[in-house]
């Protein structure tokens, strides 16, 4: 089991100083992908904040940047046509974790080239719990439990119908 362990180092291996709460938020985000090693988390934080003034970035903004970077990476690797806000990241993250992408280290995300083995594994691991629905209705069948009695009831025009009832 990948238990929750958080490195006690701040991922500020970049030249900029990063707020501690931003470090924690980014660590938490990348831990969701199965990364545990401190150097991986540090490298990923640096990757996420690349091109911005890290000291100014608040946790939410940092995570938004990380999400955007990972989504771009997933779109490139998975080549999947997934619509809907958040679906790509959620399903891509599941695929990444299920195929144990973190074993390749942070470089798997930070470098352009993705190992073919991982790429194949990722595509195969995207969770498809169910196919597209073809909605149809299963009509409720009607059973006259005692046809003779029903005929009699109709003739007498009395009592409750002796018939299966609608749900």
């Amino acid at each position: 089991m990948d238990s929750v362990t958080t490195p006690n180092t701040c991922p500020s291996v970049t030249t900029d100083w990063v707020r501690p709460e931003t470090c924690v938020a980014l660590d938490a985000f990348f831990q969701g992908f199965g990364f545990e090693a401190a150097e991986d988390l540090a490298a990923l934080a640096a990757w996420a904040l690349e091109g911005v003034t890290a000291s100014n970035v608040k946790p939410q903004a940092a995570v938004a940047l990380a999400r955007a970077r990972v989504e771009t990476w997933l779109t490139r690797v998975l080549d999947m046509d997934v619509v809907g806000e958040g679906r790509l990241l959620t399903r891509g993250r599941a695929a990444f974790v299920l195929s144990d992408g973190a074993r390749f280290g942070a470089t798997v995300l930070t470098r352009d080239a993705v190992p073919r083995e991982l790429s194949r594994a990722l595509r195969a691991a995207v969770p498809v719990p169910v196919p597209a629905q073809v909605a149809t209705l299963m009509p409720e069948q009607q059973l006259v439990l005692w046809p003779l009695g029903e005929r009699l009831r109709r003739w007498l025009r009395a009592g409750q119908p002796d018939m299966s009832i609608s749900r």
Binding site: Q31, G34, A94
Partner: peptide
């Protein structure tokens, strides 16, 4: 507790929740 502590369970569960 499992879904909160295990990255695999967490990621998978959220993906399935979103898909269905």
């Amino acid at each position: 507790d499992h879904v909160l502590s295990d990255a695999k369970a967490h990621a998978l569960h959220l993906a399935l929740l979103e898909s269905q």
